[in-house]
Amino acid sequence: MAYLAHLGILISIFVMLSMSLNLVVGYTGLLSVTHVAFFGIGAYATAILLTMTDIGFFTSVVVGIIAALTSSFLIGLILSKFDDDFYALASLGFNIIVFSIFLNLQSVTGGPFGISGIDRPELFGFIFTSNVSFLALTLIALVALYFLSHFIVNSSFGRVIKAIRDDEKALQIFGYRTHYYKLTIFMISAGMAAVAGSFFASYITFIDPSSFAATESVFILSMVILGGLADNKGAALGAATIILLPEFLRFVGMPSDIAAQMRQVIYGLLLIVLMIYRPQGFLGKYRL
């Protein structure tokens, strides 16, 4: 039961992350690889506050969101001037900067040592120690973020970001100041990614910069692409698949001296097959 709950928690956290990136990449059509940076900002906010202060988990989530909103506002101002490839490149640059801060600001982040001993959340004296209780809490957060995302994409604001994906120049002709919309959706998605980060830190109880390297952005992007762009259910399916596939392969009996390597090969092959037969992802409306 604990293992299944663990998988449920990981899936929930990465669904939150995948949905947040989907708002930017899927719905708005902006190829961003920054999201792991905001994931990390949320994680470090919770880790630092829970280990160095008396501030509790739920407050730390709010602090993480504020930190992500602030940093995404600043970087979004710059990114919203770019299109296409330059946007992706600039977002990668930001990711690298944030990673360097995590790695080098040792007095605050612990540098390469990371931060250990992060507490589990506590609410009215109840500590979410067990995997099952933590899963329940994570699911509540996930449902809340799902409804937020659903509301956004089906609103008039959502209509505009989808139109940006289709033809930003045309939208500007109609009088839309599209950089504000791009900035806003970027900030909202950063806040969501930070929530996922806070849950990640508190669940794993240890974080270090390696969890927030630029390569992890590619990992999250692959969830969005596999699940299908511009579909929240697709984002969830993509995240679940990428998390579950290697776990499933742990149970496939193979000689121990090649098991790990064979699992990697099978995992890679399965992903390739999926993309050949379903290049728009499981439930995707667009291709990247």
């Binding site: 008039s156 209509r159 505009v160 989808k162 139109a163 289709d166 045309a170 109609f174 667009y286």
Partner: peptide
């Protein structure tokens, strides 16, 4: 906007 509905296009 080819991926938006006619209604959405009008509202845009």
């Amino acid at each position: 906007f080819s991926n938006l509905t006619v209604q959405d296009n009008l509202e845009i």
